[in-house]
Write a protein that binds this DNA or RNA. Structure first.
Lengths: 262, 262
DNA sequence: TACAGTTGGTTTATTATACGAACCAACGGT
DNA sequence: ACCGTTGGTTCGTATAATAAACCAACTGTA
């Protein structure tokens, strides 16, 4: 790993829970030399990727990322388009909906929407990172992405989030194959307890999955009666998003789904 | 400039007009060695700051910037809050409104809104970069930011955008002082010909200007009659935004404005 | 067919630059 | 007065970035 990649990896320690990080803390987190971290953060600061909150000397993400993401959004619109789709999906299903994009070997939540139909609903965090092996969105992407990513994910040690998180590669491969067959992923309590989620993949112009849209409901609100409604709604949303962003599903995908969802 | 900053500076060559760049082109633009550019882009690709569009080998901004900007937005909300304010301002004034944030020695447009009240309106580009010396937004920020930034901007050679762009440091200092006195910036045809714009600064918690919200109208639609309406609308929007984002205006700022805008 | 000018990508010795241990000074608690 | 923090600095050393030159493939054109 070169200097640039190492410096950029420092940015990964910023999360929604830890939006500001001090020098010593960052040194500890990264395991690098303090002087090295300091030098890198200084450079990142010059480039405005981070900024120092005056008073406290801790770092937080800077303004450069805003400009770059605007540009990315101008080149590859996704955030805006998906936002509408997510809101519609939440309204239609009466449950929490969210959209996440593949970023390395994880999914980055881009946006989500709640419904006020019920007194309770599944809660989300801003910019949440979703593991591929523990979420329906993850299964949806794994089922239709580059096979190399599947191997990469399954050969690593997988985090256990709940007693129901599947970490056995063989079982996961089965679930991925099942998702590939049905076109829609489901996961019960894999990431958060008592949550049943449905997800479908969004494809790029090379017919590869790059993102997923999902609905998450409390387990006790999902029945054999309304599950088909959730599946249908998720599929329709994903289908519309794929087309709205200039992508194409794999050959036969839509047809198979249309038949299965009748 | 260290390696990291040099590598990150490559990202600045991506613009709304040039969303994808090939290796040779980027080498030419940056003036660096081709092998160096290649290695840096490879590292940026590893970190997912850029990605290669398959088929063509050209680079475009990657998914990492999306995740980081979501995090920044979670830590320092600005984009979402300002979007609403801009839309309201456009509706209220019947003219194009936009919000831009200070990024280095330039303003990065974060969002804008058109009004359909008239057959024509001032057009904006996504992620447009606005020079501080040629726009009302720039004057608004310069009038209430760190004085060091003013010096930095005024000592550089300033770009001429139109025959009306002011590049004389002395005259600019006068305009900045004038903005400081009135609290609201105005500029006629400094950036685009035949455009009259009004802008007011948004302050952070240290009472320093970090952004601006503005209205831009065709010169012939601005009269001594409606100009006060524009000023009032821009001030109200900026005031609301400053407070919505947890900032504070300089002591006496609001009072002075309230009096001037009666 | 040959040529000139592209493109993205690779190799090489050289040397500039990033590195890390150890060191400050300042602050906070006990 | 002490210990454990914090952010930041120093300096000799060795690693990692550098640039020129070189590929191979492709494009237009003559």
């Amino acid at each position: 790993m070169g200097t640039v990649a190492k410096a950029l990896s420092l940015l990964n320690y910023f999360t929604a829970d830890r939006p500001e990080i001090g020098l010593s803390e960052l040194t500890r987190l990264s395991g690098m030399n303090k002087a090295t971290v300091y030098r890198m953060m200084t450079e990142l600061q010059e480039s405005r990727f981070v900024e120092q909150t005056d008073g406290a000397k801790s770092y937080r993400l800077g303004t450069a990322v805003l400009r770059l993401s605007s540009l990315r959004e101008a080149a590859v619109p996704l955030r805006e388009t998906s936002k509408r789709a997510v809101r519609e999906l939440a309204t239609k299903t009466g449950e929490t909906a969210h959209f996440s994009i593949l970023d390395g070997a994880q999914l980055a939540t881009m946006n989500y929407a709640y419904s006020s139909d019920h007194g309770t609903c599944v809660m989300m965090d801003d910019a949440m990172e979703l593991p591929l092996h523990a979420t329906s969105s993850g299964l949806a992407v794994l089922a239709f992405c580059d096979p190399a990513l599947v191997d990469q994910v399954l050969t690593k040690k997988l985090d256990v989030r709940t007693p129901f998180t599947v970490v056995d590669p063989t079982r996961l491969r089965g679930m991925i194959q099942n998702t590939r067959d049905t076109g829609i992923a489901e996961y019960v309590s894999g990431f958060e307890s008592d949550v049943h989620s449905f997800a479908a993949p969004i494809f790029n112009d090379a017919r590869v999955a790059i993102a997923a849209i999902a609905v998450a409901a409390p387990v006790n609100r999902v029945s054999s009666e309304n599950a088909p409604v959730f599946r249908r709604a998720v599929f329709d949303a994903a289908h519309a998003l794929t087309h709205a962003t200039g992508g194409f599903p794999p050959v036969g995908y839509d047809l198979k789904l249309e038949k299965a969802l009748v």
